[in-house]
């Protein structure tokens, strides 16, 4: 109860603090540069000053937070990657040298590549297929809602759910993991899926695909519905078959959206960490960059230099998408 009360108190203080800032700073500005009942020149001058200051009152907290939590850390990570484990001593490029001679890094890198190829492809593909099919059946919305549901589940929760599916009992015991039960039912040998080198990566990827397909489906479904009916009707009149219409008329029209879905999932995959941490913690050849980075942050009291180097590798992989996004956004704003 005490915990609840103090939590409530801190919540209220935190939220009130924000409100007071915005309210107070704006009223203060109006008080310092009044625009009511003043001679015209004064009004004009005060108004000009106030109009120049006010955007920064509105933006201030956001800019500060973005700087402290994103801008500055990115710069500092780059700096730290040239320093030793505690971040005090300059060590040149030795962290990078270490990284490129490190077997675990290559394992993670390979696995990450595998994830990058499989997960966005499968999620987008399945999402597109499901979106197309659910759009033409009467219970499509219910189906969509159920397939979308894993979106709400944490990666760690999803990991528990799937670990249960992959559960393995040795010997003749009854299998309580669904996957092994099915294998046994068809007369196969139960397997310990999670420790099976190479293939276990795919069993982990299934979890992310399970979570992300709903996202792809929702967005692609909206895009599909945005296709003008006339183009499809025209294709029907031109004698195109269903498959032809899908691939030659519909898919080209939502190409942009497919790219957006793809890149969004790609970014997510690069950051995936919880699933690997929970399922294997990188054992049995399943390490990925994000988990390796986390590992180095805390391993033996933490090695900030090496952790930072791994983070930079992730960042470098993101940069092309970032540039593409900014270009796209700029083009869009000019169109407004």
């Amino acid at each position: 109860m005490a915990q609840l009360a103090s939590a409530l108190m801190t919540m209220i203080v935190g939220i009130l603090g924000c409100v007071v800032y915005f309210y107070g700073s704006n009223i203060l500005l109006d008080k310092i540069f009044p625009t009511k009942n003043r001679p015209a020149q004064d009004v004009a001058r005060n108004l000009r000053i106030a109009n120049n200051v006010r955007p920064w009152l509105f933006l201030g907290p956001a800019v500060l937070l973005l700087t402290f939590y994103l801008f500055y850390p990115v710069i500092d990570s780059i700096r730290l990657s040239f320093f030793d484990r505690s971040g005090d001593e300059f060590v040149g490029i030795s962290n990078y040298v270490w990284l490129f001679g490190n077997d675990e890094f290559f394992e993670s890198f390979q696995n990450n590549m595998l994830w990058l190829i499989v997960v966005p492809t499968m999620s987008t593909f399945l999402g597109l297929v499901i979106a197309t099919m659910t759009d033409r059946i009467w219970w499509g919305n219910i189906a969509k809602s159920l397939i979308f549901m894993p979106m709400a589940i944490s990666f760690i929760g999803a990991s528990v759910i799937w670990k249960f599916i992959y559960d393995f009992r040795s010997g003749g015991d009854a299998q309580i993991g669904l996957l092994n039960a099915i294998v046994v039912f068809f007369g196969g040998e139960p397997q310990n899926w999670i420790t099976m080198p190479f293939w276990n990566n795919f069993f982990l990827m299934v979890i992310l695909i399970w979570v992300q397909t709903g996202f792809a489906m929702v967005i692609l479904s909206a895009a599909l519905r945005g296709i003008p009916d006339e183009t499809i009707e025209a294709a029907v009149l031109d004698g195109a078959s269903g498959v032809q219409i899908f691939f030659k008329i519909m898919v080209p029209q939502i190409w942009g959206t497919i790219a957006v879905v793809w890149t969004t999932i790609t970014i997510l995959v690069l950051k995936v960490f919880d699933i690997v941490l929970a399922m294997t913690n990188g054992q049995w050849d399943t390490q990925v960059l994000a988990n390796q980075m986390f590992d180095w942050m805390f391993r033996g009291g933490g090695d900030f230099g090496r952790g930072a180097v791994v983070a930079i590798v992730i960042m470098v992989m993101v940069i092309p998408i970032m540039v593409w996004n900014i270009k796209r956004a700029n083009a869009e704003m000019e169109g407004r």
Binding site: P73, G87, M293
Partner: peptide, 24 residues
């Protein structure tokens, strides 16, 4: 315009990049 572009850019910055400096 610059601020807007930065926001779009920061949209994809991996969390991992921030963790160590922030922890410090």
């Amino acid at each position: 315009a610059l601020l807007l572009a930065s926001v779009v850019g920061l949209l994809v910055v991996p969390l991992q990049m921030s963790l160590i400096p922030l922890l410090k």
